[in-house]
Simulated scan of single mutants.
Amino acid sequence: MKFPSRLPRQAIAAKIFHWVNIVSLFIMLTSGLQIYNANPVFGGRAGWHIPPIFALGGWLAGGRHWHFAAMWLFSLNLVFYGVYILVSRRWKHRFVSDKDIKALKLSQNQKRRAYAWHRIAYTAIVPILLLAIFSGLGMYKPAQFPWIVDCFGDWQALRIVHFATVPIVIIFATIHALLGRKVGGDRLLESMFW
């Protein structure tokens, strides 16, 4: 009789981080679509609308409430995880280094190359997440932070930049999962949540 092999062990902080990210990103995405429908970024009020079944909040104010509540959850989760990887010194294994660049150029080991690509993606998403939060904060409190709006030129440019971060985060999440699966299979992905 063959027993199933055990899942790789992951720190409880990593599991919590992944669950909170999945839930908060889903809420921000669906509520963001509700906000978008009130005044589409592309085409103004007559622009392309998202079907209501994909939007959370029911109307503009409802979408904003859900979106900003999830934004705080997501942002605080990132801060706590950032502190965790600094204190635990896991940052040494999470972000790209010159060894990863060398591995991509020279290594024939496919697993090592996948790790290198993973670290590149993990590192590249940090400024995108900061841009999403920064631009979102400017949209959330434009009266308190008019200088954020000014950094982007005007309100419409700010909205376009914020909107553009969404597909980048979705693409990152997909690449993150695919690279994790390539390195550790389904067992590794499961271990991040269970």
Rank of each mutant, 00 (worst) to 15 (best):
A11P: 14
I16F: 08
G44N: 08
L104V: 07
A173K: 04
L76M: 05
A55I: 05
L73I: 14
A124D: 04
A124P: 02
N77M: 07
G44T: 03
A103P: 03
L131V: 11
V41K: 10
F134K: 02
L189G: 10
G153T: 03
T123G: 06
W194M: 08
W59K: 08
W66I: 04
M139S: 07
A69S: 13
G185P: 06
S31K: 03
Q34P: 06
A116D: 02
L73V: 15
N39Q: 13
F17H: 10
W48I: 14
G47C: 07
L33T: 06
H67K: 07
A46N: 13
G62A: 11
H118M: 12
I125L: 03
W117H: 08
A55S: 15
Y36I: 05
W59R: 10
T123W: 12
Y81F: 15
L78Y: 08
A164V: 01
A164C: 10
R159Q: 15
R159H: 12
F172A: 13
T174D: 00
M139D: 02
G44P: 06
V149H: 05
R119C: 00
Q156L: 13
E190N: 10
P8F: 05
L104I: 06
L78I: 12
W147S: 14
F54C: 09
L56C: 09
R89M: 04
A124V: 05
G44H: 07
N21C: 13
K141C: 01
P52H: 07
I53E: 11
A11G: 10
A121E: 07
V161R: 06
N39W: 10
A14P: 00
H93T: 06
A11F: 14
